[in-house]
């Protein structure tokens, strides 16, 4: 079997007395879309942020393409993060830069591309997410869906090997969710490896290779969508799934 592109093992994180992650392990193969579900507070965001060390795990190991990442070191860390794209729930676009500059800046400052090269690349990425006409707008002039698409373009421009998406549609009005999910779906079809936390059950059901159910800092159960949503082994998984499905159908 092919070696996983990203592997994490035994990630632990505590804030004060509270253990948020209790030794979480998972791995993703190339081209896979893995979806992380679980109640709010389960530790999904913390796990995703631990994977690229935006939050420092207390314990655990991370491998990218079989190479272990020693997160204490600056240069290696920065290089690693360039290869792991991150999409945040609340976009985190740089508020003082236009959409175009948001995408360009890391190309210029981190990857040391020339301004021209970076410009062309950024334009291409923004067009890919359907924002070719909005490149000169500032974040505050964009809708939530547009902001999230800029942030996806910003991550894609770095040619990431894996993307981590932390509830990319949770902060969006219902009518804007579709445009962002469509971009993510297209990415999946082009073979992007993704680990995504979401409550969009229909999306997960249709596209995920694997669903991972997390609760209280532990992975409770993982498996293909049919299994997790149809005949989960664990009682808590079934409970959670039926609750979310109910919510989801109500929303339609």
């Amino acid at each position: 079997m092919e070696e996983p592109i990203l592997k994490v093992e035994g990630i632990k994180k505590r804030y004060g007395k509270k253990e948020i992650l209790r030794g979480t392990s998972l791995s993703i193969r190339r081209g896979e879309l893995k979806i992380l579900i679980g109640p709010s507070g389960a530790g999904k965001s913390t796990l995703l942020q631990c994977i690229n060390f935006l939050v420092r795990p207390d314990a655990g190991r991370v491998w990218l393409e079989g190479k272990e990442i020693h997160h204490a070191q600056g240069r290696e860390l920065h290089h690693y993060r360039q290869q792991v794209g991150m999409i945040f729930q609340d976009f985190n676009l740089f508020d003082h830069l236009t959409a175009l500059r948001n995408v360009e800046i890391a190309l210029v400052k981190v990857r040391r591309m020339s301004r021209n090269e970076a410009h062309d690349r950024a334009m291409a990425e923004l067009e890919r997410v359907g924002l070719g006409d909005h490149v000169q707008k500032y974040p505050a002039q964009l809708s939530g869906g547009q902001k999230q698409r800029v942030s996806i373009a910003r991550a894609l421009a770095m040619d990431p090997k894996v993307m981590l998406l932390d509830e990319p549609t949770s902060a969006l009005d219902p009518e804007l969710i579709g445009e962002v999910l469509a971009v993510i779906r297209d990415l999946g079809e082009l073979g992007m490896t993704m680990l995504m936390a979401t409550h969009q059950i229909a999306f997960a059901q249709a596209l995920a290779n694997e669903i991972v159910f997390m609760e209280d800092g532990l992975i409770v159960e993982a498996g293909p969508p049919e299994k997790i949503f149809g005949c989960a082994e664990n009682e808590r998984t079934r409970e959670f799934c039926s609750k979310v499905m109910e919510l989801y159908t109500d929303n339609r």
């Binding site: 935006l54 993060r81 508020d95 910003r154």
Partner: peptide, 11 residues
């Protein structure tokens, strides 16, 4: 999030 996003891009 501003600092986080910058770090996530490898800055």
């Amino acid at each position: 999030g501003q600092l986080k996003a910058a770090r996530a891009l490898g800055m």
